[in-house]
């Protein structure tokens, strides 16, 4: 596409366009983002509070947490899926929430850009790392494991 030099629009209005926050209806991104925060929030109530209940309230609570505890949980596909969903939804919800906060407080385009670049980089690293950990976990790293797969 050939570019025609834009009239001197302020840098601010350009950044608003880039962030999909214009009112002239070019995208519905902010609407979907608003809806996503609410839907993911509902799912996270179950996922996060369930996670806290099982890990901190049942059994020995925090004193029982160790490699064997994790191995026991991830031997069950339900907990693998649970943790995977929780990881993805919490990271998307949290990252999107921080994007809003950056838009609210960072005034300069440059500051916004770099803060968002940092945010997205951190989010991608954490989501990829966490996903790999859930799927490549090897319970038999523990030589004293009593799980049947390790015998």
């Amino acid at each position: 596409m050939s570019e025609i030099a834009a009239p001197r629009s302020s840098s601010r209005s350009r950044s608003l366009k880039g962030g999909g926050r214009n009112r002239s209806g070019q995208t519905n991104f902010e609407l979907y983002s608003w809806l996503f925060m609410r839907l993911s929030g509902l799912a996270l109530v179950v996922l996060v509070l369930g996670h806290l209940f099982v890990n901190l309230m049942l059994g020995g609570g925090i004193t029982a947490l160790d490699f064997g505890f994790v191995a026991g949980k991830w031997a069950n596909p339900l907990w693998q899926v649970w943790d995977l969903l929780m990881l993805w939804l919490a990271m998307l919800h949290g990252t999107n929430g921080l994007r809003t906060i950056i838009n609210d407080y960072a005034e300069k385009d440059q500051t916004r850009f770099w803060l968002k670049a940092l945010l997205i980089t951190a989010a991608i690293v954490i989501v990829v790392l966490g996903t790999l950990v859930i799927f490549t976990f090897d319970p038999c790293l523990d030589p004293s494991s009593t799980l049947s797969v390790c015998k």
Binding site: I126, L129, V133
Partner: peptide, 27 residues
């Protein structure tokens, strides 16, 4: 609270990732 929980989550995924290093490191 949203920002605080998010920052904790970043650390918590990193500490859990130690299960891929060794049981000793994780424990």
């Amino acid at each position: 609270t949203g920002v605080g929980i998010f920052l904790f989550l970043l650390v918590h995924v990193l500490d859990t990732a130690l299960v891929r290093v060794s049981p000793e490191a994780y424990n």
